[in-house]
Design a protein around this nucleic acid. Sequence first.
RNA 1: GCUGCUGUAGCUCAGUGGUAGAGCGCACCCUUGGUAAGGGUGAGGUCGAGAGUUCAAUUCUCUCUAGCAGCACCA
Length: 672
Amino acid sequence: MTKYITITLPDGSSRQMEAGSSAADVAADIGPGLAKAALAARINGELRDLTAPLHDDVQLALVTSRDEADALELARHDYAHVLAEAVQALWPGTQITFGPATDDGFYYDVMAPASREPFGMDDLPAIEEKMREIIKADKPLRREVWSRADLIRKWSDDGEQFKAEWAAELPEGEELSVYWSGDANDPTAWMDMCRGPHLPSTGKLDPQAFKLMRTAGAYWRGDQKNAQLTRIYGTGWLNKKQLNEHLMRLEEAAKRDHRKLGREMDLFHLQEEAHGSVFWHPHGYRIWRELEAYMRRAIDAAGYLEIKTPQVMDARQWEKSGHWGKYRENMFVIPDEVPNTEDEGPIVSDAAEWMALKPMNCPAHVQVFKQGITSYRDLPLRLYENGCCHRNEPHGALHGLMRVRQFTQDDAHIFCREDQIVEEVRKFCELADRIYADFGFTYSIKLALRPDQRFGSDEDWDKAEAELRQAVVDAGMATEEFGWEELPGEGAFYAPKLEWHLTDAIGRTWQVGTIQSDRVLPERLDATYVAEDGSRQRPVMLHRAIFGSYERFIGILIEHFAGKLPVWIAPVQAVVATIVSDADDYAKDVAARLEAAGIRADTDLRNEKINYKVREHSVAKVPYMLVVGKREAEEGTIALRTLGEKEQKFLSLEEAIALLTSAATPPDQLAD
RNA sequence: GCUGCUGUAGCUCAGUGGUAGAGCGCACCCUUGGUAAGGGUGAGGUCGAGAGUUCAAUUCUCUCUAGCAGCACCA
């Protein structure tokens, strides 16, 4: 007896189908166009193969290339499989492991056969060609369910030790599926173990919409102790247009690279002898000073007190704070001993006591808090420091200004009572909001919850997480508009944290700001205050930063603005350029007047044509050029050229000064 | 730290088993030109460091070091 099931479609209509029919059958039943366009199906909301048999009444939505997110996910996953198939076709004996979709493409981790070197860039064109072949062959992708024993035997027989290991460890009760690429009678049929879902056939991929990008090392199961595989990265899209757009975006990001712009704009340099630490040049440090001045105005207004604490402290202090035990390997340690340079042998004796460059400011801030006796009336006490820290980062982690070994945090610790936490965190949310807005950033707020390894009791964590959450709710920011999201397992070992993720001009995100409530450190370092009833109580410490580090924040600003920094932070705000040498004296006068008005102005009196000067300062991204020739010198005027504009304005010197002064005013100092 | 790639003039990069080249920049000269590169001349290099092979190494091999990409890490 034939059983019928009811298929309900997204538009609310429904149709009866024989039990065991697939989504492909439904598509065919609706029309041949849809049958051709269908890539997969959402069955009761779950993404499934088009060919999966349906046995019960279901809600069904057919997925086509118009459902871009689903289609991309499917396509990228399939590109990864095709990549693995291509590599094994070209180099039999290659072992395959995993190949997921990523944000903009896919990768597959493979192990080259012992007979050849790991795969490299040079191999990519051949692999791409093979992949196109497989796509053009339009091989059907067929799902089969295997028993664990069969699967392990198959992988072992094929010499696929990673796959065999993985098959043995997949959770009990999970249906183990494989996908074949190619018909049963196809001699090139290729199999991979995969949960799916997949496209109906390789031909649904666009052979012109992917590109292999690079190879890199990756550990089996992400663990340094395991074998290192070769990860082959590709970017994959639904069509060639999307691919080209993506490649354009990458080019745009490369143009904005702060390391490149930093050199071109003469902002800073890095060199071998101090790798990971920045040499700031005059123009780069002008940006820094502007940010520092801005931040001082902000924290002064917000009731913080600025302090400065030692660069080096005794190792025992770091033992007490817990850093020595947990982060010792990333600290710069120095002997507390006068070196012996007279004798042969080691300069440092075995008996040397150790000190360490500070990797964080918090223990030192607690020392300031602990001086004298603090009353509950003094709380909240907000101690701020432009705190220069050193962390011995792994060499491979260093990256321009973004990841360095010496950096300066806009660091503050708010010491407060339990009942002040929510209020203080809320105020911080508002302060951060103002500051990011002043730099033109939008952002999202995340709450990073307790990690597996942590200090403190579960009750403390419950409380701490709830407080941070409440503060964001109070600030009205726990909403979609602020990208509010909770991230399990991402917190610091001593506290949950709120994180601010900036979105830059080309859509990348950067985590910068943070606030964390900490009950562990005050305990460890025995910080107390005198409560209303005369008892000694523990304050709570809120660790917080808005820029994160000056180095990294400047890097982000450079990339966000593509070097065209807002006038108020531009290192050189105006260049007075002469057309003829007769105007030199006038140009110097103009520059002096600008400087007197607080504008950072240079002169360009060189024996070059104005075209040359315009080009050079445009490339250097100077916001304003004041061009002066004979005419301007006689009339007391200037010709103003604004970066990014073709038109010039002819202004009196007074008008120009007023215009530039206004344009160069920091956003926090603008009259409302 | 791991894997791969790279290190040649201030910058961007060619190149070679017989100790080096371009463009830009820089210096000087000519040119005083009205809004994105005027012309000429010249200076400038221990070819990342060390070792090995070789009659001879910037070139080939090894070690180290730094950078780049990714991984791992990121208090």
